[in-house]
Write a protein that binds this DNA or RNA. Structure first.
Lengths: 347, 347
DNA sequence: CCTGCTCTTGACAGCGCTTTCAAAATCATC
DNA sequence: GATGATTTTGAAAGCGCTGTCAAGAGCAGG
């Protein structure tokens, strides 16, 4: 394609030295107004844009921050990325994002890729890669982790109190009179999935509700697994009046399973999620869930990284999730007759 | 942070010249096995990773392709991005993505940003920026547009036959006996929104169905607008038995409006979308929609870009969307009594 | 008009890598 | 073992920019 115009061309054309052009570009030093105008005119005319690679090489900073995400198309990570994008806006920094797909090997490759590109900082969203690999990265550039605790870097982790979030859900259900509540867990290779499940168990115990192994299911955070587990649950015939899902996506899947069995939400069973994805406002009925402000978390991470880059030592305020009661939860259907709340035919 | 190790360090440590190390890194030329081993050992030991910026500068290619998207957190663009990511996988290229948020100015800034980073190619997803700006970019690097036609670059556009997609929807509804069908259009500053609406109008005429202005609504592709327009529609009292939405997100919003009014889908009204977002499989009931293979479109765009970069002139197969019938559409409720299908109280 | 000061400017080295060119080493052949 | 062909190797230039340094220009004061 056409020849790219360099700072050199601009300098020649304007009759000044490259240094002068550089100075004008970066505002590094004073330049007499007439030269400045001359140069700026030439820049306009030639449509010159500085080569970021060369700038990076020359001054040792790439003005980019690496983002290791897991699945760019998941609504959860999508919103976080949008938050990061927003947090970086206005700064000179630009996010480079790579997906790890929850696979340690791919995550490692992603980190390598980003280090090769000499990102000035790194933001890590979840992931299953060992802490050690992240510590290694953190030795070279400032690192902030979101939704995951990294040993030795705890003060650089934007954490969510998953236990507290689930506890609020259980408390809400208990207040509505639910006792038999089922749970679909997330992929337990992920820290947060474990925390949420444990939080659920703790809360149930605290509130004196029965914790039945047959009502504890294990999904993988996807809609499909939510549907699968919910439908297994239904088929098992064990009665329950509320179903707590470890995230909104699984709740969505579970909702479909309930629909297929003709169960109404919340009249027959109450359903809850976790994350408060944007679209959870629009499910039928709108989903009761735990708000995570995913977007803000991303933004906070970006801002933290920026101040880290500016040399500050920012302090992270831990994020407290909050229950959003919508319309997928309601009072227990039948006034607690001994022996079972819901009877499912075995068809 | 710690000093970064350069190719120079490796060379010195291994007792060879920088050229040799470079040759080993890139497989550019033969190197005697013992030297190769020596160097590779040092690379391992020093944990050396080549600086991509420097490489880019030296050989004039950055091995990155720019992606101008609109809203990174929208499920639609998220899936497209995942497709692009996948299409680029295995190649040496890496996507740099920036969001334009459907604002010409921001899109221009995004393009500038990417050109500064000297991307080797560009993928444009939709957008409202003038064709001229894209033509200008296309003069410098190979460019592929998805879901948008760019004057003078049509052969580089991955297009979707929006008219045909909507026509299939209308035909499907007609076969089910629907006559009074309402339509919620997308943001008509976007090409595809116009095409879909026109396609709807054409199809209705072709099939001899009445085209009532009062049943034509104008949304903006968001869930909120879908809810708003559907609820206005309902409140207006004009009877209709089917509601066609220009995309899935608005259908989701409309679904909620129907739910609020106690209207069942599809028993009382049939509902359709467009895009076949992943989550549309999980709405209640699962949504009848037009499949766009957003993911594959992204992948195809990426592959096209790669062959363009390899110097080929790939030929683009235009994409034909296809109707996916799920459970949100059904036969007309009442057997067509004169004067109105549905009566809405004015409350 | 000269001295001493400050402000503006250009030459040049260098960022980390690739690649060309020619020298050095290796190999095959007579 | 000498010759030429071939392969391996290192020196050096250059990619496009920044930043240092010292020279040049501009100015105030004497």
């Amino acid at each position: 394609m056409s020849v790219t115009v360099t700072l050199m061309h601009v300098a020649r054309e304007a009759g000044v030295s490259p240094s002068t052009v550089s100075r004008i570009l970066n505002g590094t030093a004073n330049v007499t107004p007439d030269k400045r105008e001359r140069v700026e005119a030439v820049i306009q005319r030639l449509n010159f844009t500085p080569n970021v690679q060369a700038q990076a090489l020359a001054n040792g900073r790439s003005f980019s921050v690496g983002v290791l995400t897991q699945n760019i198309s998941s609504p959860f990570y999508g919103e976080t990325l949008a938050g990061i994008e927003r947090g970086l806006e206005g700064s000179l920094y630009y996010p480079l994002v790579v997906s790890g797909h929850w696979q340690a090997e791919q995550e490692q490759q992603a980190l390598d890729l980003l280090m090769r590109r000499r990102v000035d900082a790194m933001i890590v969203l979840g992931g299953v890669i060992e802490d050690e690999a992240l510590q290694q990265v953190a030795e070279r550039v400032p690192l902030v982790a979101v939704g995951r605790n990294v040993l030795g870097l705890t003060e650089r982790c934007v954490l969510i109190d998953n236990r507290e979030g689930i506890r609020q859900v259980v408390r809400h259900l208990a207040e509505l009179g639910h006792r038999e509540v089922a749970y679909i867990s997330g992929l337990e290779t992920q820290q947060d999935a474990v925390e949420r499940r444990e939080g659920f168990e703790e809360a149930m115990r605290e509130l004196g509700l029965p914790l039945r192994p047959t009502l504890m299911r294990r999904g993988d955070y996807t809609e499909a697994s939510g549907e699968q587990e919910a439908s297994d649950l239904l088929r098992s015939g064990v009665p329950f009046s509320a179903l707590v899902c470890a995230n909104d996506q699984m709740a969505l899947g579970a909702r479909l399973a309930l629909y297929r069995r003709g169960m109404r939400v919340p009249e027959d069973v109450s359903l809850t999620g976790f994350d408060d994805l944007f679209s959870s406002r629009y499910t039928t009925p709108p989903l009761t869930t735990v708000h995570q402000a995913v977007n803000e978390l991303g933004q906070q991470a970006a801002e933290t990284v920026l101040s880290l880059l500016a040399g500050d030592l920012p302090h992270m305020t831990p994020y407290v999730p909050r229950l959003i009661v919508r319309e997928s939860t309601g009072p227990v259907p039948h006034p607690l007759t001994a022996g079972g709340l819901l009877m499912h035919d075995s068809s």
